[in-house]
Structures are given as C-alpha cells and as structure tokens.
C-alpha cells in the first residue's frame, strides 16, 4: 500500500503531458499506420491498468511495466497486421480487443476492490 503514498505524481504528470502534447502538436499519422492505432491504444490501456493494479498490490515493477507496455503495443499491432495480410484483420482485431477488454475489466475490478474495499 506504500505505493500510493510514494506518489504517482510523475506518472500522472507524464500522462497529462502526453495528452497536452497530443492536443497541441496534433501530429498527423501516416495512413499506413492508422488501422493499428486504436488497437495500440487498447493494448496500452491494458498495460496501464495492469500497472495500477500491481502498484496497489504492492508488487509494481517499473521494468515489467515498461516491457509489458511496449510488447503489448507491438504484439497487438503485429497480430492485426498479420490478420490484414491473411484477410482476417477485422476478426483478429475483434479477438485482440476482446482479450484485452477482459483483462482491463479484471484489473479494473481488482483496483476497485483495493480502493473501495468492495
């Protein structure tokens, strides 16, 4: 539980800075990458929720978080890319979203239990 007090300030600042940068800079994404972005975001969300839960469980590890974030995004992108090449891109995207969605829900439930004890 110490994790809560040791300040999630830097990560939250990072998140805020990212959102601000996204709004202010408004970078244009190459068209070839566009189909993978939503999947990448969901994969990243999974890593974030996993990280928050680990923090609340008291077993957060920065290395695990960084590696899981990067690999999540890359693997999700790769699966969708492969699916596109095989002609089942839409179905595979759905599969990825479903699996990640289940994990996000599970982690969100664990976080909720930590925070509200319910």
């Amino acid at each position: 539980m110490k994790g809560i007090r040791t300040g999630p300030v830097i990560p939250i600042l990072g998140l805020a800075a990212g959102i601000a940068a996204g709004i202010l800079l408004d970078p244009s994404v190459p068209t070839s990458l566009q189909p993978y972005l939503p999947i990448a975001v969901v994969a990243a969300l999974d890593a974030v929720f996993g990280g928050i839960r680990a923090r609340l469980d008291g077993i957060f590890d920065a290395k695990v978080f960084v590696v899981s974030f990067i690999s999540n995004v890359v693997v999700a992108g790769l699966i969708v890319f492969l699916g596109d090449q095989l002609g089942v891109g839409a179905q595979l995207s759905t599969a990825v979203i479903v699996v990640l969605g289940i994990r996000i829900f599970g982690n969100a439930a664990a976080i909720r239990r930590h925070l509200f004890r319910a």
Partner: peptide
C-alpha cells in the same frame, strides 16, 4: 511510457 500512451 505514460506520456506516449497519453499522446497516442
């Protein structure tokens, strides 16, 4: 990482 996520 979180900066990247937010931007993304």
């Amino acid at each position: 990482c979180l900066l990247l996520i937010g931007g993304l």
